[in-house]
Design a protein around this nucleic acid. Structure first.
Ligand code: FES
Ligand code: FES
Lengths: 135, 135
DNA sequence: AAAAATACGACAATTGTAATCGGATTTCCA
DNA sequence: TGGAAATCCGATTACAATTGTCGTATTTTT
C-alpha cells in the first residue's frame, strides 16, 4: 500500500503539535495525551527524530522537545527518512546480504521504477512541515 | 514506508511481461517460472487484475492472459487500485465501522495530508504501463 | 531527596502480507 | 470421450513487520 506507517503518522502529528507551540518546551506526555497516541511508542518516535536532529530534547523535569529548525525547513521526506531507513519503493531494490534481486538480469522494470520513486520522493521533499501546520 | 507491496510488484512485473508478448496468450505458469514468482500467489494477483478488467483471461488448455487495453492506457494507479482497495495514505483516513478518526476534531493535519495524497496519486496516475515497459 | 521528564533495550501482541492447499471448472486435442 | 493443462476461488497457514508495552537507568529542576 501507499500508506504511511503509524510511526510516520504519529511523527508528523507530533511535529505539527510542537510547531504550533514554538515558545515552549513540549513534553511527550502532553502530546500523547492531547493527541491520543500511546506514550511509549511516541517517546521512541520522538527520540528517533531527536537523533536525526529534527528536534532538540531537554531532559529532566520541565523537559521535552523543541523543533531544531524552522518548520519550513523540515520536509516530509526528512521525517520519513528519520523514522525508517529503508525508503525504497520496491522490495527488489533492497540489497539482501549484499546481494541484489535475482531477477535483475532479465528485468526491464528497474529503471522505470527508479524514476517513479524519484518522482514520489520529489513530492515528499517539496512538502514542508510548515505547509502541514498551515493546512 | 513508501513501498509497493509484493503483490503490486508482482502485478507490475507480470503486466510488463504480458505487454512484451502482445501477439500471444501468456500463461501464469510461464510468468511464474520466468520471473521467479510463486505460482499460486501470482495466479491470485492475475485473477484480481482480470476482475478489474486490466487483463483478459482465457481458460482451459492453451489458456492464459492478454492485456485488455493498450499499455499506454493502463496507469500504475489502475494497478494499485485493482490490487488493493484501500489506497489511503494515512490510517486515520480510513473509516472503521463507519467511524472516522477520534482525533479528527483537533486535527489540523487532515487537509494537508489529503493534498499530499492527491499529489502522489497524480504521479501514479500519470505513469503508464507503457513507460514501465520501455524503461 | 523527590518528582518528572527523557533514554533505551528487551520483549509481547497484533496485524497484514505472503504463500500454500484443496478442489472445481474450463478448454483443447489426441 | 477422456486426460492434460490451464484458469478459478475459498480457506487456511506461515511469516514478518509494525505496533505497543515493560522495566530500568539517567537527567534535571525544585
Ligand atoms: S531488479 Fe528485482 S525485479 Fe527488477
Ligand atoms: S483525522 Fe485522524 S489524525 Fe487527523
Amino acid at each position: 500500500m501507499i500508506k504511511f506507517s503509524r510511526k510516520i503518522e504519529y511523527g508528523i502529528l507530533a511535529l505539527q503539535y510542537i510547531a504550533l507551540n514554538p515558545e515552549r518546551v513540549v513534553s511527550a506526555k502532553e502530546i500523547s495525551e492531547r493527541l491520543g497516541i500511546p506514550f511509549e511508542f511516541l517517546s521512541k518516535t520522538l527520540q528517533q527524530l531527536m537523533k536525526k536532529n529534527l528536534i532538540i530534547s531537554q531532559q529532566g523535569l520541565k523537559g521535552g522537545y523543541v523543533l531544531s529548525k524552522k518548520a519550513k525547513d523540515i520536509s516530509l521526506m526528512d521525517v520519513i527518512n528519520a523514522l525508517e531507513g529503508n525508503a525504497s519503493i520496491v522490495e527488489c531494490f533492497i540489497l539482501k546480504n549484499g546481494l541484489s534481486c535475482e531477477r535483475l538480469e532479465n528485468c526491464s522494470i528497474r529503471n522505470p521504477m527508479t524514476k517513479i520513486q524519484s518522482k514520489l520522493t520529489k513530492v515528499l521533499n517539496a512538502t514542508t512541515l510548515e505547509e502541514v501546520v498551515n493546512g
